[in-house]
């Protein structure tokens, strides 16, 4: 295992992440979730699309979601470059190669397709949904992990 800088401990990080749900709900009346931003970006990038999923999406009414992800980028910059005493690596160096970029692209397609088909991701289902005691979100979360473990099982047998 490569040495990594110490993260904020779970008993601080986890509760702070959990507070995002009531903060967004009370301070802006919104339901915490991120993967719907992919749909909004697609709607914006193809304004004349005839695809119902993009055409019928009123992204302007959901533009808070785009501000939210913009905020995440700013926060991540602050967390990694301003409020820090050393670089926190988030991706391994072997992804900065041609094959690495292709892997990320392929994985990204699965993330985009999968989260839209499942109606949500770790934030919308695992954190918001389960916090709200919604059993479909528990099912989704179990599937996230099942898919991940399945992928690992495949890659153990197919050397990269």
């Amino acid at each position: 295992m490569e040495p990594l800088p110490q993260p904020w401990p779970w008993y601080i990080s986890g509760p702070l992440i959990g507070l995002t749900v009531p903060a967004l709900l009370i301070l802006s009346g919104k339901t915490f979730g991120i993967s719907s931003s992919f749909r909004h970006f697609c709607s914006i990038l193809s304004p004349r699309s005839k695809l119902a999923y993009l055409k019928e999406n009123d992204w302007r009414a959901e533009s808070w979601n785009l501000l939210f992800v913009a905020g995440i980028m700013v926060g991540a910059y602050l967390g990694g470059h301003v409020m820090t005493d050393g670089k926190i690596p988030l991706l391994p160096s072997h992804y900065y190669t041609e094959s690495g970029i292709l892997k990320l692209l392929f994985g990204g397609v699965l993330v985009g397709f999968g989260t839209r088909y499942a109606d949500g991701c770790t934030s919308g289902h695992s954190i918001t949904g389960i916090s709200n005691l919604r059993w479909p979100s528990l099912v989704a979360t179990i599937c996230f992990f099942a898919g991940g473990l399945f992928m690992l099982a495949i890659t153990e047998f197919i050397p990269s």
């Binding site: 989260t115 989704a140 099942a146």
Partner: peptide, 21 residues
């Protein structure tokens, strides 16, 4: 889709090391 899409997302999550946030 919650099941099928969820599993596809999980596969992508392992590869990219990143969920959407």
């Amino acid at each position: 889709g919650v099941i099928a899409g969820g599993m596809l997302f999980g596969m992508g999550w392992v590869i990219t090391g990143a969920c959407p946030g």
